[in-house]
Design a protein around this nucleic acid. Structure first.
Lengths: 318, 318
DNA sequence: AAAATAGTGTCTTTTAGACAATATGCG
DNA sequence: CGCATATTGTCTAAAAGACACTATTTT
């Protein structure tokens, strides 16, 4: 029942405890052939200098999803509710915030062509961090954000197989090869993240060790002084190197470009075209990149929400 | 970030609004060859005499999941955290409770062999309602509970295909035929519910029409005076008619037992045994039911959490 | 022409489904 | 035995996968 042992129409404050409610954002993107998550660096205790998911309090009279969109705009400069945003899960364990009782609703976003991360106005740094680096380099994440991130990575990995979610990491118009590359990258990086998370994740509670300043700053930052500038999200295709060489990890990804199970181009083509309503042809053709090759057809995503049959990762050759 | 434009270690109450946090329960069960959901009938405004999901406030210092287990025990008499309980989704729209701002975390439970529903102690009726009746007979659901139920039904339908969830509706030891019947019932009833929800669901907001007392009481009730009696959950197999003839709908189900796409016994057998670790043989055999037949092997569920390949519903013959 | 990428054809292997056949209990 | 249900076998159709081949561009 709703009102628990209450018989009058409105509650008195003694009947239930007060909670603070926040939204946390998991902003995924594929930049420079790497699956990334937007993290900010905290400049306040607790967890000062740790990384954390962006987020903030839900306002009074504000819907949860509205709050998530608002925070997304504030943190990424995305206007007008473009891209994909869905509720992931709610985290509300009693001890998860040392200061007070906070219930946090996590939202999951998949975005293309994000502008440079913006600090929220305060002295705060933000970065699109490659997810594969998070278990390895033992980046500290504040609160229970590591658990939240792992849940989100699992969800992402599952969801691209049976929904058109992967298209959200591509531009408005894209080629089948771009889409295939997105699948390759997400399957590769999520698999690696989850493998790393499994071993590295000693399942200690959220506030485990004292934060280490040194390891909390393994990347190069772009402190941004200006307040949130709303980059509008229209750029030409093949904007395939916005953050290149900026993070210290990009080169690493290149070196590790050893073999991982990529999808077969021919079979992938058939798979996606076979799902009726998944891809809508535009009639246009892409211009081949610098290295030449036949121009590819451009597609937009249809209005389907379930792919059947699903797009599956290639089995690891036994 | 967590603290939003707050620089000191603890928050002052002006920085964020207060919310009440509740858990709502979606207790599914398969009783008398029918998929059912536990609903209570409200005896207070708002939505007096409407049906609602059971639930209640989260206590201070209590984890969300603990609150859900506590409420489940209170509402169903289930002790000791048996069965399946997982978080579904959080509902927190600003206007969803007319009295105050309530954020409600919905939890999804799949239970076998539930005792008769117990009122929470107050004058409150509870019943395991067949889900197929909810759209048809236009049973009034309070708040946004119809939306929550529909989300849960979709989740249930999806989840039995790629997890061992369906086994949670069976006894500890079960035959493959029992499991197959569970799949048949869930696929049949969820399909029917969702079809009905699609048309009946004029997408008006939560508080649509005034509640009608007559249609809010289409079933026969079992008012239970005693406080929660903790039925322990061990009964022999084939307890296949606990609520028989009690609800006014049981016979309807029998009559409507016209053809729906049932799974092929032979192929189903192979499907489930093929998934390694799904079913664990016990060595024991069931005694054939009254109608005779070869005794079947008894199985328990393994400790797998993903079925691959998934168990799929039979395609409707085109 | 050579290289590179897009897209198609074809063959093989695997999986799913229909349905017959056999097994094992009961009255 | 005859009935009912469980379990296995067999054949067929559909899907998935490997990989060769054709197409269209750039240098």
């Amino acid at each position: 029942m709703y009102p628990c042992s209450v018989t009058n129409t409105s509650y008195s404050s003694s009947d239930y405890p007060d909670f603070a409610v926040t939204v946390d954002l998991l902003v995924f993107s594929v930049i420079n052939k790497t699956l990334r998550i937007l993290l900010i660096q905290r400049d306040e205790d607790p967890f000062r200098y740790s990384w954390a998911l962006p987020g903030g309090f839900v306002h009074e009279e504000e819907n949860l999803e509205s709050a998530a969109w608002r925070e997304l705009a504030e943190e990424t400069g995305i206007a007008n509710k473009v891209g994909h945003l869905e509720q992931l899960r709610t985290y509300g364990d009693a001890g998860r915030d040392p200061r007070m009782r906070v219930v946090s609703v996590a939202y999951f976003a998949a975005e293309y062509d994000l502008p440079e991360p913006q600090g929220g106005g305060d002295a705060k740094y933000a970065e699109h961090v490659p997810i594969v680096e998070i278990p390895n380099k033992s980046i500290k994440l504040a609160f229970d954000h590591r658990k939240i991130l792992t849940d989100a990575v699992e969800r992402l990995r599952n969801k691209i197989s049976y929904t058109p979610l992967a298209t959200q990491f591509c531009p408005e118009e894209f080629t089948i090869a771009q889409l295939r590359s997105t699948y390759d990258i997400i399957w590769r990086d999520t698999e690696k993240y989850l493998a790393g998370a499994k071993e590295h994740d000693d399942l200690r509670g959220p506030a485990s060790k004292p934060f280490e300043l040194k390891s909390a700053r393994p990347h190069s930052f772009q402190p941004v002084a200006a307040p949130v500038a709303l980059h509008l999200v229209t750029q030409p295709l093949k904007s395939e190197a916005p953050l290149a060489e900026k993070t210290s990890l990009s080169y690493l990804m290149q070196n590790e470009e050893t073999s991982y199970a990529k999808l077969d181009p021919g079979n992938f083509q058939r798979s996606v075209l076979q799902v009726d309503g998944f891809l809508e042809p535009t009639g246009k053709k892409s211009s081949p990149s610098t290295s030449g090759g036949r121009p590819a057809e451009l597609f937009t995503v249809g209005n389907l929400d379930q792919l059947s049959p699903p797009i599956r990762p290639k089995k690891p050759s036994k």
